[in-house]
Amino acid sequence: PAAVLAALPGARAVGGAVRDALAGRPVQDVDVAAPLPPDAIAAALRAAGLKVFETGLAHGTVTAVLDHEPVEVTSLRRDVVTDGRHAEVAWTTDWREDAARRDFTINALSLTADGDLFDYFGGRADLAAGRVRFVGDPATRLAEDYLRALRFFRFQARYGRGAPDAAALAAIRAAVPGLARLSAERVWMELKRLLAAPDPRDALGLMAATGVLGAVLPEGVAQDILAALLRAGAPADPVLRMAALVAPGAAAAPLAARLRWS
């Protein structure tokens, strides 16, 4: 990441790496954003001696590799058109505009190579308080991409403490019909990450109360079996936990086919 930041004047680390560093948690992948169009980013990285793979050029993303360590680098973006699943984007040089299109305040933080933190929407305070809150109007963020309803519960399971954000829950409850527009692969991707949390039961209870769990798992659920699995100290394996979560008697093969499992 240091080599990438050095190659791109004005670039910052963004998203999960900044969030987890502030939370004192292990940092996994470091993502970088820069106020340059993707072709200029790629040229600057190659000039600095890094390998560049154009992994998501239409969305403004390239992957830089140095010493076998990949770093995703994305142009600052603003949404032009959204349809609840995908977005058409345009490049911008405005960091606040880029942060405003992100899902939650705790994911809208950015950090310079010199350690200067930029927090346009109160994400640092929300992180300290254990509050998962949408950037701006929750209904607007959900209408841009309904997967954010599931992402809310994943982040609630890992970072939330105390009462969940009431405005977020109300907007999610109203957005449940939009979940039908999501692909099975994207739904399972989020469910898998939620089920890998140390203890997902409270978040799953919130999902049930808002109607989200019934929408994505119409086969029915049995949280008491999952609770027994957790008490037994079983591995935090998402497929194992899904097997415990789905109601007894539910046909496993149709569920696996619907979620496009291997």
Score class of each variant (00 low, 15 high):
60 G>H: 09
29 D>G: 08
86 H>R: 14
143 A>R: 13
25 R>T: 02
120 Y>N: 06
37 P>W: 09
51 K>Q: 13
143 A>C: 07
67 D>W: 08
151 R>Q: 11
145 D>M: 15
125 A>C: 09
94 D>V: 12
85 R>T: 12
148 R>E: 02
20 D>Y: 02
26 P>M: 02
99 A>D: 08
20 D>A: 04
149 A>F: 03
159 Y>E: 04
38 P>T: 10
19 R>Q: 01
153 F>P: 03
162 G>H: 07
17 A>N: 06
21 A>C: 08
68 H>G: 06
87 A>P: 00
21 A>H: 10
75 S>I: 04
61 T>V: 15
32 V>E: 05
87 A>T: 12
144 E>T: 10
157 A>L: 03
106 I>S: 07
116 D>S: 13
110 S>C: 12
38 P>R: 07
143 A>M: 07
150 L>C: 10
20 D>F: 04
100 A>D: 07
38 P>Q: 07
115 G>F: 07
50 L>V: 03
30 V>I: 12
110 S>I: 03
30 V>E: 00
97 E>D: 12
55 T>N: 12
104 F>S: 02
31 D>F: 06
88 E>C: 10
65 V>K: 04
76 L>Y: 12
148 R>H: 09
89 V>I: 14
132 V>Y: 06
73 V>T: 07
111 L>T: 03
81 V>Q: 11
162 G>F: 08
27 V>W: 01
86 H>M: 13
65 V>Y: 06
88 E>D: 13
139 A>N: 06
160 G>R: 01
65 V>L: 14
77 R>E: 10
71 V>I: 14
16 G>V: 06
50 L>T: 02
39 D>V: 11
59 H>C: 08
69 E>Q: 14
90 A>N: 07
68 H>V: 10
58 A>K: 15
42 A>W: 00
18 V>M: 09
58 A>H: 15
64 A>L: 08
33 A>N: 06
134 F>K: 00
67 D>V: 04
161 R>E: 14
37 P>S: 11
135 V>W: 03
61 T>D: 01
36 L>W: 09
124 R>P: 11
30 V>N: 00
120 Y>F: 15
101 R>H: 10
135 V>T: 05
